[in-house]
Design a protein around this nucleic acid. Sequence first.
DNA 1: ACAGATTGATAGGTTTTACATATTGGATTT
DNA 2: AAATCCAATATGTAAAACCTATCAATCTGT
Lengths: 304, 304
Amino acid sequence: MNLRDLRYVLAVAEHRHFGKAAEASFVSQPTLSGQIKKVEEELGVTIFERSNRSVEITPIGEQLLIYARRVIEQVEAMENLAKAAQDPLAGLLRLGVIPTLGPYLMPLILQPLRKEFPDMHLVLREEITEQLLIHLRHHELDAALIATPPDDDDLQEIALFDEPFWLAFPAKHPLYNKDEIYEEDLPVDQLLLLADGHCLTEQVMGVCHLDQSSAHDDLRASSLETLMQLVGAGFGCTLVPALALRGSWATDTGVILRQVHVANAERRIRLVARKTFPRALALKALAELVCKHLPNTVRKVVKG
Amino acid sequence: MNLRDLRYVLAVAEHRHFGKAAEASFVSQPTLSGQIKKVEEELGVTIFERSNRSVEITPIGEQLLIYARRVIEQVEAMENLAKAAQDPLAGLLRLGVIPTLGPYLMPLILQPLRKEFPDMHLVLREEITEQLLIHLRHHELDAALIATPPDDDDLQEIALFDEPFWLAFPAKHPLYNKDEIYEEDLPVDQLLLLADGHCLTEQVMGVCHLDQSSAHDDLRASSLETLMQLVGAGFGCTLVPALALRGSWATDTGVILRQVHVANAERRIRLVARKTFPRALALKALAELVCKHLPNTVRKVVKG
DNA sequence: ACAGATTGATAGGTTTTACATATTGGATTT
DNA sequence: AAATCCAATATGTAAAACCTATCAATCTGT
């Protein structure tokens, strides 16, 4: 049996006339007659009792029609659903973000996103890079915003922007008088770090030429917010990604911020997804939207 | 789209492997791949995200699968229903009977019917011939038991049996001493009749050579039961079909019954149905069952 | 009563499409 | 490096759905 055949049956039931039903189905009357006959033979049941001047539905045919109508109804609902979902810019997009980026980037783009792509339904998940990549591979996420190259042949990336690191230190710190920070100024021995696993931790250590052994591991903050509270409280200094400068800690914590003039004192933020992810357009749209709403503290990458 | 395609989609979803799904669907892998691709193109949506080592279902695919499963489920229910209804001896049979036959014949066959064809669901309707024929033509009945030739080219008949008329008269009637009634004995002037419309009325008039004008129309009974009550009460005589002899009036009403030796003092009972009615076997089975359970007071017709 | 219109079924030929086998390209495993 | 696995692609074949033309039966209107 066939959906087309069911539609033919419904057409005959509606018109009670093979010719009219054929016309309404955009086929010839012999074709329709043949298909109806085929269905009846397949089901082993007479659906229509036809004479030369009337077409009537048998009682069993009436029962079958109820099912046929339900089937066609469901199929049409299915097609409508697909049609509504055809727009790659619409529908669910499960996006992961690293914790040192999410709280500062997402507020900038959520409202524009709702305005420009009202049908795109973003579901956010904040985890460290390693977890995000696992979720991507497991198809539990569709895309992720991270700060390291994914290093996985199954994944693709769209580079978005470079986010410089700023130096954060307590108000009473000797560096207070320096407006500009160079490599030799970095207070490497007073450096406070995030917990392991955060990509930011390794990147900051890289900028400061620290390795695992030489880094303090007695004081590790579990979040950037906590870290800045520690800085404000005078426990040490740290490097902060530019977008985080406007975090909630920025007011009244007595933390001083300075631009850093050191090579590679920045991280590249990219949108990664599986190469096989079918909604490339959604990724592109999201990438462009993010770039469009970035502050001047970061440097956009010119596409790619 | 196509039911076959939906089954393919479900198979891939189940196996998460095109080769295995193809095998389970008894087609080659390229065929299945092609059909899946076709469905995705038709729907404009990617259902499966495939790489060289995995097949995963997209979120929209998951939603579509819910519908696909429902559709297939309904279709299978439909096929099961048809299969269950394939037996022409099973299922609904809407049967009409004339009022002078139904109450006496049906009790004889209902139980055997339930025993021999437990799946045949008889729905009875008791009306005069004219109404029954109208209902037959309107497909509101499938068959009818009547006592006159249907005289309609769209209808067919199976003759079942000839039912003789018996003379019924009050106990004190002068005919009491006659054991056998011949034409000249018929008490034509005392004849009581049923209401017009009943075929029995005309047939009894025919046997007695009465026409519309010469017949009493001051006393007409609305049912055979009433008629016999009138006879028992001494209002007159009448002719009764043989099967009715065992009606509820037969005891304690003082009605005397005599066999009648008059040509054509009988009526032929036939099962009529539309020529186009598809369940000829059900008719045949019913006809045979009726004949099998008739008392000796009637003469079975030898098939046809 | 007879010609013309109507209706569903049938016949024969064409186009579409579903299918199979063979092969390819990319990735993984031994 | 060779073998294996997997889905996609290429190409030819067989089944099906479809069309036009026609038939048989009936109904309509003169």
